[in-house]
Nucleic acid binder design. Structure first.
Lengths: 123, 123
DNA sequence: GGGCTGACTGGCCACCCGGCCAGTTTCGCG
DNA sequence: CGCGAAACTGGCCGGGTGGCCAGTCAGCCC
C-alpha cells in the first residue's frame, strides 16, 4: 500500500550491443520498483550504451581555440566571433584554421560536429 | 563458479533529478548481476535522465531535407551533397534554405547544431 | 643572447554560401 | 476538373569562408 505514492520508474533501453541489451532487459525487468518502457511510453530514464568508439584523450586545444569553437557552435560568423572576443576577423580565421587541422574537419560545420562527437563541446 | 564467464554489468548514473537518482541507485545497487560504477571506472552502460526539457514533436522535415541535413552534419559542401543525392547544387541550396527556416538557424553550422540538440539527427 | 613556439594581425583571392526571383511538377481537396 | 499548397529545380549576386603569404609580439628553453 505504498507503491501508489512512488510509482515504478520507467526505463527505456538504447543499447547497441544486442547481447548486453538482452542481459540488461532480463535483469532490469525483474526488479521491483521499476519496469521497462512499453512502445511509445515516455521513460523516466534511459539506459544507453554506445559502441565503444575511440574516446582518445582530449585534443589539445588552446583556450582561444575553445572560445572560437564555442561561438562557432552557436552559429556565429567570423565577424561576430571577432566582435565577441575583441580580436580581428583575420585572427578568428587563424584560429578556425587551426581548429580544422586539429579536429580533422573540412569546414566549420564539420569541426563543430566532430567536436561535439568527441565531447570537446556540448551542444 | 559461473559468474566468471559473465561478470557484473557496470552501470553509471547521469541523473539530473537527485530524488530519482537516489531511488535508482538504491534499486539498481541491489540487483544481482550488475553494480554501479566506482569513481573513474568505465561503465558498460549509462542511465541518463535529463531534466524534462520541452521535447516538442519533431519538426516537420521532408525526406529530402533530412537527406541534406544528414550530409551537412558530415561536413559535406553543397557540391558534395548535390553529387551524393544526384541533384543540382541549386536544389541543395533550396533545401538548405528551408532547413535554416525550419530550424531557426542562421547558417548550416547553426542548423546542424540545432538539429542535433533537438534530436533530429545524431552526431 | 639566440632560437623557438604560439597567439595575434593583415592582404589577397578563389571558392562557397545564403538570399533573391522565377519556373515546373505533383499531390490532395473542394 | 480546377486550384492551391508544397516539393523541387535553376540563374544571379553580395557577402562569408578558407587557404596562402608574410609579419609582430610575448614567453620559454638551451
Amino acid at each position: 500500500m505504498s507503491e501508489d505514492t512512488t510509482p515504478d520508474i520507467v526505463l527505456s533501453l538504447e543499447i547497441d550491443d544486442p547481447a548486453l541489451a538482452d542481459r540488461l532487459a532480463t535483469l532490469l525487468g525483474s526488479v521491483a520498483g521499476l519496469r521497462l518502457a512499453g512502445p511509445g511510453e515516455t521513460a523516466n530514464a534511459t539506459v544507453v550504451a554506445r559502441d565503444p568508439r575511440v574516446m582518445p584523450e582530449d585534443i589539445a586545444l588552446t583556450q582561444r581555440e575553445l572560445d572560437v569553437l564555442a561561438l562557432m557552435a552557436e552559429g556565429a560568423s567570423n565577424k561576430m566571433i571577432a566582435r565577441q572576443l575583441n580580436i580581428s576577423v583575420h585572427t578568428v580565421k587563424f584560429h578556425v584554421g587551426s581548429l580544422l587541422d586539429k579536429l580533422d574537419a573540412t569546414g566549420r560545420t564539420d569541426a563543430v560536429a566532430h567536436a561535439a562527437r568527441r565531447g570537446v563541446i556540448e551542444l
